[in-house]
Design a protein around this nucleic acid. Structure first.
Lengths: 194, 194, 194, 194
DNA sequence: TATGAATGAGGCTTCATTCAT
DNA sequence: AATGAATGAAGCCTCATTCAT
């Protein structure tokens, strides 16, 4: 019986609620209600709300690395890169209203005392950035890029445009800004490629 | 002595705290303490916390339109455009830690029931988008752009890269992603200019 | 110009709000808003909220005694008595929803520390009771009643049935209980008259 | 040891305080203090203050129906009817100061937005009214009443005189008006019986 | 008479967390 | 692995009242 464990259910529900409303607007009670779990189950499985956030980030990271998504495996072609960008667009269409990136949203709401969680968020960002950078480095080696292209900052740019596109689309309740962001980012990459 | 009114002090302090920690992590008490105001003064000047947020947005909008900043006046040259982008960089250096865009941060934390506030946020975004679009339209007319350039989506792209750059810089506690974002965005604009 | 003074306006509005919602559910701010008066006007004219209630009772008492209503003058005939009862019915039809007796409602919400106000309320009750009792005494003297009729308790009964009728009609949002109460009370009086 | 549950204790204490001071003059804190309960226990058991009022009404209704009181069982004789009336008198003597009817007091303080609570109050009134009406209908059938007696309005009259008697006794801090009300009401019933 | 600004206590409610079983 | 009950701090908001002008 592939029954989803209580713990996993809590994590899944929490991710969804954090993604939709943010960690600060999501109470432990909200999560328990949505997951039909008792109050003390929560503190049996998690040390605290921060502990849950940590588990959510962990599970999110796992999802990115293991699942059969364009993010999880290496980006090894320009098609892969397009897939990588468009993945965020596809994902977002699954929700009734545009959402920000769960990772970015969680990261943005962390305060300076939540050092461990910040680290976790940054590790995931590092992972995604590295995936992009690796590909850009390879492309550069192959002569796809001019030699003066800074692949590190280019990866930062890619992540930023995705975060910004998702965020503005959420705020404006319209998927267009995300589409525009991706379109122009890909166009930019195509131009500097040659 | 042009004494700052209590109301204005509250708005100023609130903007700062919202900017730093977000609206959900900033309590009314936090604001009152930081502005050295009595509890009920708050509700004398504002109908509710939402009322304050609205006043903060209003004041932010005023600041954008009236102050002597690159956002407030028309963007009428490519230098102006660079100033516009770099303004966000300059601003951010005034804080000890990188911060997200106050407007984007506030907008991102709003929930679907806060319709009026969402409208306000979107009006400000519209204003900034229009400033960019107007310039791009003019440039297109002047032949600076190819005829197939979609100036509307280009303006969306610009706002997104700023939001994303600011946000990732905040999360990563490092100004570099913002710099990278602006650098590449300007490079993109320069390329498609010609 | 027969302009209503600010003070009188406050009193009139307060009576209306007290009548509709009770003294405990009516805040000073409610009254000021409904009377379009400034906050400090209130404390210029009244020592406190209790002071206002006292003024309201006073004005109510005046209204009862001076106005051209069946309560204000002597009850000197059985027709007058019927008018007295029916006056409460007529009054109540002026409101969109049945209301309790303002005097009874105010009195019921007073707490044991509000001694002065209680006294005021009781004086008004005494006044009304006396009006009834006087008539019953006269009637008794005239031989309208049997000698063993206790006119004092009969007056209490009359006031109680009015209070109860008004109150239950308010609660049930239906004028019928008040009508029924008055009908049976008058019938009772008619029977013991003979 | 049949320990009274916290929830029941809160309800019992609340009924007593509501009965004495009304729902609007009784704060949640008052109830918690009087029941020696921690602040958040309250919101563990009740959704809100309104939720508590609802529970209080429910418990009051149960008490009326189940307890060995003259109200709970059928009124099946004129003695029962007298007991019914006198029950309110007996009850009231248990308090140091006369009190209004808890049901009437709660009902009178409800505002027009508290629809659910109003419904609950009216159901209890309906129940009591029906108990009276049933008996009057039977009596009418038995020929105790003249055929033109309106048993429905007679039941309304009975409830009104009790509410009014209790209320005026409370206001006047004297049990006499209640006694007078009951005495005359019973006399009226006796007369129209014949 | 009148004004706007200030005060501080208290009201209702939600929060994250812990305890005893 | 799970339960329901309890805790206390904090959150947002309203109250009656007073002050300086």
């Amino acid at each position: 019986m592939p029954k989803i464990s209580t713990k996993n259910k809590i994590v899944a529900v929490a991710l969804d609620l954090f993604h939709e409303n943010g960690i600060n607007a999501t109470s432990v009670d909200d999560i328990l209600e949505a997951s039909a779990t008792g109050k003390s189950q929560f503190y049996y499985y998690f040390k605290s709300k921060e502990g849950l956030i940590s588990a959510v980030l962990e599970s999110f990271f796992k999802f990115i690395r293991l699942d059969a998504s364009p993010i999880n495996h290496e980006i090894s072609s320009w098609e892969d890169l397009e897939d990588f960008f468009n993945f965020f667009l596809t994902m977002n269409k699954r929700f009734d209203k545009p959402r920000a990136c769960p990772l970015g949203f969680i990261g943005a709401e962390l305060n300076s005392s939540q050092v461990e969680l910040s680290k976790q968020v940054n590790e995931i960002f590092d992972y995604m950035k590295l995936a992009l950078k690796k590909f850009f480095d390879k492309a550069k080696k192959n002569g796809d890029f001019k030699k003066n292209i800074d692949t590190d900052s280019l990866a930062d740019f890619c992540l930023a445009i995705l975060q910004g596109g998702l965020m503005t689309s959420k705020i404006r309740q319209d998927i267009k800004p995300l589409k525009a962001s991706i379109k122009h980012a890909l166009k930019y990459l195509a131009i500097i490629r040659s």
